[in-house]
Design a protein around this nucleic acid. Structure first.
Lengths: 184, 184
DNA sequence: GAATTCATGTAACTTGTTACATGATTTA
DNA sequence: TAAATCATGTAACAAGTTACATGAATTC
């Protein structure tokens, strides 16, 4: 249900094609939302059927045609309604495959466990570093003043990513320590 | 794909019925994994077809019959294989509906935003408090020594929950501050 | 007397994933 | 010459959600 509003929100900021949307998801929302390209196209035809979006075909030289989607007034309304409802945080608990494995840690050898924790830390550290770079670059860029608001909230979401990655790394380091300390 | 191994893992620790499984998911794994009851029963019949589990019917006085599932040797093997593979952290990015809304914060009134952040903090604080209680109770309990290992890893997963909730609250408090400071 | 707990499941639906198809252009 | 980029989509499948059905026993 949320992908619908994710798309609606993005094209409300700026009209986009399905292809563009995929790139925005991958580049800017990937750490808290994702969508496959086939899913985006399916959702766009649905939104179009519902009258929440309309598109215009843009012809390009030496490139395939583009369908540029823009939001309609009823789409704006639906988006606004959604934005003013508070999500159910409990039922939408994120799934964590790594934690699921750790839950069954007693069935994994200690060496393998430590190996996996180290790998986890490495990956999280590189994600953290990449996000930090992204954050600093976005902060520096001086776009047109109309986008200052959007930039402000994008930075806000990224800060959460930074804090979560940071906490995850701290947790994993602590886990390695406690694995060593129960050494027997 | 992971629910399969979640179920396999749980019944490898202790034989359980579908009903039992649902309760374990809700009580012990809910902050990093969840499953609907209909999904669990579907998965159990699939696991049974694959030969990874078998069940025995347990008759009870004045209660419906139970199917107690236990893991088979080939199930154990499949579980072990899964436990020794490292999950793809990038593609499995958790979805965060609250963050999705905040991304579109420029379309929400400042008052509504602050209201939502406060609500977010309240909910996370009560989740944190509940988890903390759960953690302390589990730590205190003196079960049979065979379960010490399982307890150790359960506590480990809960600590991540505590740290993530804590970081989320800190982030939200920071967000409210920065919303006030851009006051205009 | 109504709701909840225990215990099983089915059916219909939505969401997410994987894989394929087309076809020109550009980069390695 | 092979691969990647641009841009659209379809088909089949897996995973997750919602709603319903049964029926005894217990709790409110």
């Amino acid at each position: 249900m949320s992908l619908k509003y994710g798309i609606l929100g993005l094209i409300s900021i700026k009209p986009l094609s399905g292809y563009d949307l995929k790139r925005v998801f991958d580049n800017s929302l990937n750490f808290f939302w994702s969508a496959k390209q086939s899913q985006i196209y399916r959702e766009l035809t649905r939104l179009s059927d519902e009258g929440y979006v309309i598109y215009e075909v843009e012809h390009q030289e030496g490139r395939p045609e583009k369908k540029i989607y823009r939001i309609t007034p009823s789409g704006e309304q639906a988006l606004k309604n959604w934005l003013n409802t508070f999500p159910d945080l409990v039922s939408t608990s994120g799934k964590d495959e790594f934690l699921l494995r750790i839950y069954f840690g007693s069935k994994i050898s200690k060496d393998e466990l430590i190996f996996q924790f180290r790998k986890y830390i490495k990956e999280r550290e590189s994600s953290l570093e990449a996000l930090r770079l992204f954050y600093n670059n976005l902060k520096k860029t001086v776009g047109d003043p109309d986008c200052e608001q959007e930039k402000f909230f994008r930075l806000m979401t990224i800060r959460k990513g930074l804090m979560i990655y940071d906490a995850s790394i701290k947790w994993a380091l602590e886990c390695i320590d406690s694995l060593y300390s129960i050494c027997d």
